[in-house]
């Protein structure tokens, strides 16, 4: 009798686990430049400039019912375009982001907490210039099940829209502003990421 009960409970537990796994879906960032944008904004008295890249890649695991998830993002330093070719070159220099040694900027989330509506608090490790720091930020995560409309727009499977922005202090990542760049690049820059991801 006891064995049957244990078996039944195990079966139910397995069923629940399977349901839970089924709800946690993996979304990959859509490989289309118009559906993804990473940007960094520097504001000084001289000028405000924005570096942009559509070469961001990565994936998310998201459970829309339980409102939990995690994700990994990666951005090649060489893909950041500030609008001025010479400035792009400087950005990749050894004094700056050292693209030759550290070709990618990475963000790996470690935990999420649902705040309200589509808003989440995300904690994760941000790696730039070979230095990893833990950051905490807010993200807007919107999930849409596959539909005729999403298919018409070229998406495969369910769709996830993720938007986040957070400040980064450059010296925390061993990026020291010196020489001619003093006053032209802000000590703290704002990173903004917005991507579409899909299950298909």
């Amino acid at each position: 009798m006891m064995t049957i009960r244990s078996f039944s409970l195990s079966f139910v537990a397995l069923g629940l686990a399977a349901t839970s796994l089924a709800q946690m879906k993996t979304y990959t960032i859509v490989n289309d430049p118009k559906h993804k944008l990473a940007q960094v904004e520097s504001k000084t008295a001289v000028e405000t400039f924005t570096g942009k890249s559509t070469a961001i890649t990565g994936s998310f695991s998201f459970d829309a019912a339980k409102k939990v998830g995690r994700g990994t993002l990666q951005l090649p330093v060489a893909s950041i375009d500030t609008g001025i070719p010479l400035r792009n070159e400087h950005l990749q220099d050894t004094n700056w982001l050292n693209a030759a040694k550290n070709p990618n900027i990475r963000f790996v989330s470690q935990g999420t907490r649902h705040l309200k509506g589509d808003e989440y608090e995300v904690t994760g490790n941000f790696t730039m210039n070979g230095v990893t720091k833990q950051i905490k930020t807010k993200a807007i995560v919107r999930q849409l099940p596959a539909s005729a409309q999403t298919r018409e727009l070229g998406f495969k499977g369910d769709v996830l829209r993720v938007e986040t922005s957070f400040p980064i202090t450059l010296k925390d990542f061993n990026v020291i502003i010196k020489g001619q760049a003093v006053g032209k690049v802000s000590e703290t820059v704002n990173v903004k990421i917005s991507v579409f991801a899909q299950t298909g």
Binding site: K34, L37, Q149, L153, G154, V159
Partner: peptide, 10 residues
């Protein structure tokens, strides 16, 4: 940066 998908979906 205009995005047709974002406009139609959200």
């Amino acid at each position: 940066q205009l995005n047709e998908a974002e406009y139609k979906l959200f």
